[in-house]
């Protein structure tokens, strides 16, 4: 890594596009909302900036903590499941031949060309009480019963007497399922991108030296693809926290996430200052957690990603 003073021209050329863009087209707009979070509503649409901290203190109500904790739990579980699924899939892709690699990548991205809402409604059709999954299970259940009857092992019925469809929708399970479904490419792709180009002779060496596959995975592969995993975790965990469409459509009566609360402040509650305060609290908490994480794993993180 060079100091910026060494190649001033190159440095300026490379830093300006991103820096200027994010300042003008992100932080400047955001400043309006940030200022608003210190304001009060004076009538239906006007906000007076009074420098009040009321919006923030209001957010420290127990109910918001509860919602926030719930959102973190759901997002962490989702991220973890994404990671478990993505590792083998990314492995499979990066160890395939070139042509199959491209094919598999496209195969993973393709479903996401359909609008999120359409995909979610289609997921509902599959998971609902009379949906395809339950239909298949019922079919299997009847077949097994028939086989049992035929063999005379059992008097024709598994308990309970009738097939009871699984409740796959409108609970926290379906929210997590939906979130995993939506965010899985954001985990697979960063891991694949890193896995793809690292020196595979490390693995061979490790295996040759007698380390088992599992040991090699944890001692060699995971540390080497750590930057990919971290990026994937960031790209899944963070958007999950703010998601609201999935909990809205797939969640049951208990599946409110912080994203839903924030969305309502900007819409039906028409309370933009409070919505802004909640949004910024979420940003502060997330950045705080990232900083804590980077303190703990300073060495790896400084080298590789942050």
């Amino acid at each position: 890594m060079d100091s910026w003073k060494v190649k001033k021209k190159f440095f300026t050329f490379s830093i300006i596009p991103g820096f200027a863009w994010i300042m003008v087209f992100f932080f400047l707009p955001l400043a309006f909302v940030w200022i608003m979070s210190f304001g009060e509503k004076s009538n239906i649409i006007d906000v007076v900036i009074t420098g009040t901290l009321d919006n923030y203190t209001r957010a420290f109500d127990r109910v918001y903590f509860k919602v926030l904790a719930h959102s973190f739990l759901i997002s962490l579980i989702t991220t973890f499941i994404c990671l478990i699924i993505s590792l083998p899939i990314a492995f499979l892709i990066s160890f395939s031949s070139r042509r199959i690699k491209t094919f598999l990548m496209i195969l993973i991205i393709l479903p996401f060309w359909t609008n999120l809402l359409i995909r979610t409604y289609s997921l509902i059709a599959i998971l609902r009480t009379e949906g395809h999954v339950n239909k298949i299970l019922e079919f299997l259940w009847i077949k097994i019963n028939n086989v049992l009857l035929f063999l005379g092992i059992y008097d024709g019925q598994l308990t309970p007497n009738e097939f009871i469809p699984l409740n796959l929708l409108y609970n926290n399970f379906s929210v997590i399922f939906g979130l995993v479904y939506i965010y899985i490419p954001f985990m697979i792709i960063p891991i694949y991108v890193v896995l793809d180009k690292f020196d595979k002779s490390y693995i061979e060496a490790s295996l040759d030296l007698g380390a088992g596959q599992i040991k090699t995975l944890f001692k060699i592969i995971i540390p080497l693809i750590y930057p990919g995993i971290i990026s994937g975790v960031l790209l899944v965990l963070i958007p999950c926290l703010g998601s609201f469409v999935t909990p809205d459509l797939l969640g049951g009566s208990n599946s409110q996430m912080i994203g839903n609360v924030i969305e309502r402040q900007f819409k039906s509650a028409n309370d933009w200052p409070f919505g802004a305060a909640l949004s910024f609290l979420l940003i502060y908490i997330t950045i705080g957690l990232i900083l804590i994480h980077s303190l703990f794993s300073k060495k790896i993180v400084e080298e590789k990603i942050l």
Binding site: K66, V67, H70, S253, Q256, R264, S268, A269
Partner: peptide, 10 residues
């Protein structure tokens, strides 16, 4: 209304 809705959902 909105506050009580947040409490209901939570």
């Amino acid at each position: 209304i909105e506050d009580s809705w947040t409490r209901i959902r939570a």
